[in-house]
């Protein structure tokens, strides 16, 4: 029932071409879904921050979308959108936009009031206040949200493939599960974990590049 590490590695090597073929499908879904999810999350956060009425109207709804387990909506999405890529991407959008929106909203609200007052005294308009104060103040929270979203995107892709599809690591998983091939099962689990970690590392790298002021100490040395 529990394969030895050696067996898992052997399975990984023997299944490597097949794993890679499925990985490409999953990653494609994850990237498209993540990109769209982050875009939707960003737009939602900006709109909700600009118009208080939208915030009041949609914030509770936003929370509700997160209380529904994704395994429960995934079959519905399959029924509505078929077995192709669309239902997978929709599921990823639903699960990734939330951490981005919430993070950004918090970030926008944490922007320093005095700094905003200063820019207003300099005659800045709303867009300029957003660009020079609100958005940069929200960057740390945006990246925290992105980290979570990145991990969710892979998991979301796998779950939706599980419930119907022609390719991808989720489909591969259901197949080896039915064959009771535990070694292959563990091989694919480790692969998914590794991919999630790699995506999060990528976000971390982008974070460092976008916020260079966080990586220097008093003397200006790079940390």
């Amino acid at each position: 029932m529990l394969p030895s590490p050696v067996e898992v590695i052997q399975a990984f090597i023997s299944e490597f071409p097949l794993l890679m073929k499925n990985l490409v499908v999953t990653l494609q879904e994850a990237f498209i879904g993540l990109f769209l999810g982050v875009s939707v999350g960003f737009i939602a956060a900006v709109l909700m921050d600009t118009f208080d009425i939208l915030y009041k109207a949609f914030y509770p709804l936003l929370i509700i979308t997160q209380t529904i387990p994704s395994v429960a909506i995934a079959p519905l999405l399959v029924l509505w959108f078929g077995y192709e890529m669309t239902p997978k991407i929709v599921l990823i959008i639903i699960s990734t936009f939330f951490p981005v929106t919430v993070g950004l909203l918090d970030g926008f609200r944490s922007a320093d009031k005095d700094s905003i007052g200063l820019l207003r005294s300099m005659g800045a308009n709303r867009f300029q206040i957003f660009r020079y104060i609100k958005f940069p103040s929200a960057l740390p929270q945006l990246f925290s949200g992105l980290r979570i979203a990145a991990a969710y995107s892979v998991v979301g892709a796998v779950i939706s493939e599980w419930l119907g599809g022609f390719g991808g690591l989720g489909v591969y998983m259901t197949r080896v599960k039915k064959a009771f091939a535990f070694d292959k099962m563990f091989a694919v689990i480790f692969l998914i974990a590794a991919i999630s970690l790699a995506l999060m590392a990528l976000v971390g790298f982008a974070e460092k590049k976008c916020m260079p002021y966080r990586n220097t100490n008093k003397k200006g040395e790079k940390l």
Binding site: S121, M122, M211, Y213
Partner: peptide
């Protein structure tokens, strides 16, 4: 132009 006790320099610039 207006300057306050807090320098209000933007930390990310």
């Amino acid at each position: 132009s207006y300057m306050l006790q807090k320098d209000l320099l933007l930390p990310y610039r």
